[in-house]
């Protein structure tokens, strides 16, 4: 971990206000921001550990524990609600119960006229997701892993 962190720190050393970019890079590399990284980040940026911890916990995007095999986000904002996202979210929770996937709500993916929308592993998007389509996507995901 230290080698990864040092590379990331070096990349951002000249950047004003580098904490968020550093946290993004760490999460990108490791999947989450480990507790052990906090004092190292704090020292690098001349911040207190509390300040770093405060930033990590303020932003919903940053995780302090490793995610499951896949990260599935279901949009729960109004435009998707108007197209049945609550039923989809309930279905998703049931479908993924006991499975090693991380299920999270997200508040708007910018796919507002084609809801309900979901996002898989940060960049893969799917619109007009019915429970059947969700199951098919999860099946495909299971085969990929």
């Amino acid at each position: 971990m230290n080698a990864i962190l040092n590379t990331i720190f070096a990349k951002h050393r000249q950047q004003p206000g580098a904490l968020l970019p550093i946290l993004h890079d760490i999460q990108h590399e490791l999947g989450y921001v480990p507790e052990e990284a906090v004092p190292l980040i704090a020292r690098e940026l001349n911040l207190s550990r509390a300040e770093v911890h405060g930033v990590i916990t303020f932003y919903q995007h940053f995780r302090q524990t490793p995610p499951g095999k896949h990260l599935v986000r279901v949009c729960c904002a109004e435009a998707c609600q108007a197209n049945g996202s609550e039923a989809l979210a309930a279905h998703a929770a049931k479908r993924l119960q006991g499975e090693d996937e991380t299920l999270e709500p997200v508040y708007c993916l910018g796919l507002c006229s084609m809801g309900p929308a979901i996002q898989i592993d940060e960049t893969e998007l799917h619109a007009r997701v019915t429970p059947q389509k969700f199951d098919a996507l999860m099946h495909k995901l299971g085969e990929k892993a």
Binding site: C76, S85, E86, A89, A90, L103, P105, Y107
Partner: peptide, 10 residues
Amino acid sequence: PLPQAGEGLG
């Protein structure tokens, strides 16, 4: 009371 969007997820 109905389940609300996002409640029960994550």
